[in-house]
Simulated scan of single mutants.
Amino acid sequence: MLMDKRERIVVAMSGGVDSSVAAALLKEQGHEVIGMTMQIWDYSRFTAPDGKSFGTCCSLDDVYDARRVAEQIGIPFYVVNFEEAFQQAVIDRFCDDYFAGRTPNPCVLCNQVLKFERLLHKARELQADALVTGHYARIEYGQDRYRLRKGVDAGKDQTYFLYTLTQEQMAMVRFPLGGMTKEEVRGHAARLGLRVAEKAESQDICFVPDGDYVRFLEEERGAGQLNGEIVHVSGRVLGHHRGTYRYTIGQRRGLGLSWPEPLYVIAIDAAGQQVIVGEKQHLAVARLEVGDVNWLIPEPRRALRASCRIRYRHQEVPATITPLDDGSAEVRFDIPQAGVTPGQAAVFYTGDEVLGGGWIK
């Protein structure tokens, strides 16, 4: 998205190639650009055994990279400390969900609460015209409202994580990379000589840098309180487990069970401390319910046809979405879907436009 007048723009700089290119391109276009990085996690709480950096976002190395890029392109740079808000909104929710038998999606919450509430508030305090991030998505205005559309790079589209945006937020948020491919973005980084041009993609959850979320959960909440039985859908007890939070819907590996057919986790009953398993056919779900629905279109009063994505890497499928009186919605799939997981987001699309979404109950 090009801007045709000089504006004051705050760029959320994560230290990666995407946000760095966004900042550099806007500076190149003549805008007044301010770099801002969120400090959300105290990495002194985790020491890597080999001393190496993990491939996560928002690490101290990323903060340093963001600062150096800001210096390189000649823009002011600030670090804002959101550790307390991140703990309350993201980490506590992450732990609560796992200990309640859900599988959380912390990236949606981080975008919702940290970037597009708190960081946007900081941008307004600086009297900025816009808050820019490096997301692969597009915001367009037409017919009296803003529309959130997929990025043109289908493999990098990040609209799944952005369905909580409001009309007020979209009026000030911009995604200048939404019309580019990742290859084009790296090409700009090389052309501009940015030090992060070849930096690897961030992976995993930023506050679980070694990927061992079980260790993290037990450090936060303790171990042993959710030990129990592994139960077949028929009611037969097949074994025992050391915590329901160790399992997620659709999981096959690590069950340690002997059975004539492959078994999958079908459900998690945290209250009863049971992990329910069954054959593959038991994974298929014809309907689900989502709560805390956010509509990016005028809130519908009756059922509508749309496509639904139930995980970030899930291909959205045709469904009927029925709004319910309590602000939730029912989703009925044309074809039953495997891997429907409470705690994940379900996002609704028509073509490349996001209609809304909510949390799978």
Results as ranks from 00 to 15, higher is better:
V233R: 12
E279S: 11
L131S: 07
D92K: 14
W359P: 00
G193I: 02
G278Y: 11
L257E: 08
E140V: 15
G101C: 12
S19L: 11
Q344F: 06
H135A: 12
L217M: 15
L192M: 15
L263W: 06
G179N: 09
V185S: 01
N105K: 08
T37K: 01
H240L: 03
M13L: 14
L263E: 04
Y64E: 06
R138E: 14
I9L: 12
D292V: 03
A154I: 00
P260W: 13
A286S: 15
S59G: 13
Q274S: 05
A271G: 01
Y349I: 11
L60M: 01
L162N: 05
R221A: 15
T350V: 10
V317Y: 09
V233G: 01
G193P: 02
G224I: 01
L120M: 14
L238Y: 10
H232M: 05
F216D: 02
I230P: 06
T47C: 07
Y43C: 10
E7V: 01
Q273Y: 03
S20W: 06
E183C: 00
T181A: 00
G254M: 02
A189E: 07
V196G: 03
G151S: 07
T181G: 14
N105M: 12
R138Q: 15
G254W: 01
R6E: 13
C308I: 10
L263P: 02
R305P: 06
W259A: 14
T47P: 02
D210Y: 05
K115E: 08
A223P: 09
E168P: 02
T181D: 03
L324C: 04
D96I: 02
W359K: 06
V331E: 02
K280F: 11
V354E: 00
T322H: 05
E71R: 13
E71N: 10
K5P: 07
G358Y: 00
V285Q: 15
F46A: 05
L296F: 01
Y146S: 05
R246Y: 10
K27H: 05
G151F: 08
E316A: 14
F175L: 13
S44C: 09
S19T: 14
